[in-house]
């Protein structure tokens, strides 16, 4: 199935370009992590608000830091947030969804559904603020808030799939030969839902990066380091004075990465949608 998917993804020009964009950004992020790029993000290397030059490709900011360096470093931040949130919320959502789908109609299912309902009903930014309070300004408050709210969609998808697959024959068969219930879920049901998870994960990734920007802007986001959100927050005052460096650099980088992910998610969905074969 993977090879078939890859073949179809390769023949989709939009999906392929999305994949390339995401890969390039990931490469940049890796370089930042391994100390090859973006290390000078905090150095004051010029005067304030310098224009575009050979030394500062995107100019400098209010206190003379190089915007290119900060944009590159922001890529790593974006991936850190995106990956942490995506992995944790997908794991959480999968476990919760599998549990509530497998023990469909039991008290456990009821509790998980109730929790999902509640979390979906709280306006996210308020919730993030509340988490930030509860965690007394921990740098992980933003991550926690996102993970705790983003798992619900994943769980809903997995729950539906588990219930659907449970009704098909092969789980019955696994039970008949004596495999215990929940183990069966993880061994047989979840591989069958992998494609849905992948698509949902890419959607969560987009949401996480988007939300980081907004939370950072509201002052609830990244505490140390620099992110595109913080750069945009800085730029909101600068643009009125005609300094577009931060805005253009962070805005463009953000747009490209999100666009890449959106295209990739769409193409994945198309490539993995088995119904497409029939059509």
């Amino acid at each position: 199935m993977m090879r078939e998917t890859w073949q179809r993804l390769k023949s989709d020009p939009y999906g392929l370009s999305g994949l390339i964009v995401v890969s390039v950004f990931f490469l940049i992020a890796s370089c930042v992590w391994s100390g090859l790029l973006g290390q000078g993000w905090y150095e004051v290397s010029g005067t304030r608000w310098e224009g575009i030059s050979a030394e500062h490709w995107f100019g400098t900011n209010l206190i003379g830091q190089d915007i290119l360096q900060r944009t590159l470093f922001g890529t790593a931040t974006a991936f850190e947030v995106g990956l942490t949130v995506t992995i944790c919320s997908t794991l959480l959502g999968t476990v919760m969804g599998a549990l509530s789908g497998w023990y469909n109609h039991s008290w456990l299912d009821e509790i998980i559904l109730w929790l999902k309902g509640v979390l979906d009903a709280i306006p996210f930014y308020l919730f993030a603020a509340a988490v930030a309070f509860a965690l007394q300004g921990s740098p992980w408050a933003m991550h926690v808030a996102m993970i705790v709210t983003f798992w619900t969609t994943t769980a809903r998808i997995i729950r539906g799939e588990v219930i659907r697959i449970k009704q098909r024959g092969f789980i019955e068969a696994a039970r008949a030969i004596g495999l215990p219930g929940l183990k069966t879920v993880f061994r047989h049901v979840l591989p069958n839902t992998f494609h849905l998870l992948l698509v949902q994960a890419s959607i969560v990734f987009v949401a996480a990066i988007n939300t980081e920007v907004i939370l950072s802007f509201l002052g609830l986001g990244i505490q140390d380091g620099v992110s595109w959100g913080l750069m945009l927050a800085e730029s909101s005052q600068e643009v009125l004075a005609g300094h577009f460096g931060n805005f253009l650099a962070a805005g463009t980088a953000l747009f490209l990465l999100l666009m890449g992910f959106n295209l990739l998610a769409d193409a994945l969905q198309d490539a993995l949608d088995s119904r497409r074969i029939v059509r």
């Binding site: 643009v239 005609g242 805005f247 999100l258 959106n262």
Partner: peptide, 24 residues
């Protein structure tokens, strides 16, 4: 619509401000 989904709210706000509200 994919392009629209890929632009952050903040970028849209700041971008619109530059285009509509500033001398630039």
């Amino acid at each position: 619509s994919v392009v629209g989904m890929s632009i952050s709210f903040i970028v849209i706000i700041i971008g619109l401000q530059i285009l509509l509200c500033t001398p630039y």
